[in-house]
Each structure stands twice: as C-alpha cells, then as structure tokens.
Amino acid sequence: MSHEIPYIAAINEAIQLEMERDEDVLYFGQNIATTEDDPFLKAFGSDRVRVTPISETAEIGMAVGAALAGLRPVVELYMAEFMLVAMNQVVNEAPRFRYMSGGRVKVPLVLKAGYGFTAGWAGQHTGSIYSMFTGVPGLKVVLPSTAADAKGLMATAIRDDNPVCYFHHYLLTLEHGDVPDGEYLVPFGQAAVRREGGDVTIVATGFMVGKALAAAEALASEGISAEVIDPRTLVPLDLDTILTSVEKTGRLVLVDQATRYGSASAAIAADVAEHGFSSLKAPIKQVTALDATIPYSEPMEAFLLPDEAKISAAVHQVLGGSPVATA
C-alpha cells in the first residue's frame, strides 16, 4: 500500500516513524518545534525534539556527543551551506571519531540539510556542495530524488551507525510522489534505474534526475534510447550498476548540479574511465554547473545550471553529433 505525499512530508514521515520505533532518535536544530503545536514536539516531547540557537558548531558537536553516548540524533541544519560554518565538526570530528578509536565507538547521526535553492537565493544559499563531503572517509552522502526515496533513505540514514549527510533538494520540496506506507527502507549503495535504454547511459543525481528523464523522453522521439540511472547515494556509490549499463550502451553522460571541479560527476567519470574504458565507444561527457558562484539574477542563474537542453546536446555529442542514432 502507498500514499501520495510531497517529498518534504515523506522526509518528515520517516523521521516520525523512526522516532516512534526507537526512542533513542532525537530531532533538533534550527527553526523547528518553536510552538507547542509542532507535530514532532507533540508526539515526542521537548526532550527529544528541540529548537536550538543558530549555533551550528554546537548543534553538530552535540549530535556527535549524544551519538557517542548512544543516541541517534537527526540535526536540522536547514541549509547545506550552514554546515560550512561548522566544518570542523562535520569533517574532522563526526567521521573521524570511530576510526581513531579503533572501532570502539560509533557516531550514528544524520545531518539533514536542504541544498540547491536555485531560485534567486544568490551566492550563499544555492550550492550543491555535497561533493565537499564525498571525499571525507567515514561520512555517507545521500541525495534523494523522489518522495519515496526521501522517506526510505532517511529511515536508512537514521538506522545507519555512521554520520550521514542527508541532502534534500529545495526545488523538490513540494513534488508529490507515491510513498510506501509504514516502515520503508531504501538501502544505501543501490542505484535506481529510472528508465531503461540501449543507446546511452545518463547518470543523474538529485534534482537532475527529473531533468534527465525529461531529456530522455524528448530523445526517444528522435529514436534515441537513453538509460537513466539515479545513484541515490554518492557514498557509498553503486558503481556496478553504472558499469553494467555502460557495458550495454557504450556511452556515458553524467549530470550533476554541482560545479564540476572535484565533483561527484568527476569522480564517477574517473571511475568509469578506469574500470569501464574498454566498454566506451565515445568520451564520457559531463553536464554540470559551470564553475562559478550562483548569481542572483535569473538569466545568469539559468546559464550556469544544467538543464534538459544541455543534457540532450551532450547525448547527441556522445552519439557522434547526429541527432539520430546510428543504425
């Protein structure tokens, strides 16, 4: 059985279910539970659900300490960039502690942060900064693209014994989708094949999954059959599904809303080049944001970001420049 709800509601549903299931799960952070009417506060009380001051370092650091003490905090960071204020806690404490203790401790926590509010939020609130964290061993990085995944990945994140950066895309907030009822877990490290095809593999993350599917739809009318893969989690990454697809299609287009240099896209491209080179019939093509801070004004913002047209153009390019697939 399933029900149709917005992406944001699916996230909340997962947190709510996990809090019901496990009384060690906490939910605290900025701008939540400020009134008695707050559903989390009503359901779980002010011990487990709390608004914090705008003190990222303390919020994340306390999550680490509470996790080491056996709790499973979910920290509401509000915006991904706010993690940068407390970079030390995210990068140099949470994921290091278990390792440096020789496995004697664990740090199960979820840093929940919205990203990519590319709707005029200008330079400091719009970044797709998840690749800053994919290079930090010990952190897991999750990028749900559908309401069902938003629920299932959050539940898995809360149950995971590691610190998990859970990045939800702001532009997907109100996107409705079918979400399974009750307990629902989406395993980490299992990509979803969103559309099957034989001519080209498109790997897209987060908000770009929808753009890639739309591009694939348009390409189908030209006789081009694109396979669209959503990795769902960047760490761990399901490289096998991508390599298997590339083996079939021989062509790869990567779509990532992040800036290119040091991005998840670049990392996947490198892995495919290393492990799937013999399958490739054309160079890998990356469709990413251009390397600049996101500007405020709309036309400039659009110019920087990947979109359907750029994805289609890249597909044409890897297919040899012809708008129609070679027979």
């Binding site: 005029g120 200008a122 330079g123 400091q124 500007p295 405020y296 004004s297 400039m300």
Partner: peptide
Amino acid sequence: CGGYGGSMH
C-alpha cells in the same frame, strides 16, 4: 551589484 547579489548582498 549588477544583479549578482540581490537583496541580501
């Protein structure tokens, strides 16, 4: 700021 910053910047 030529439209690069907006209200906040």
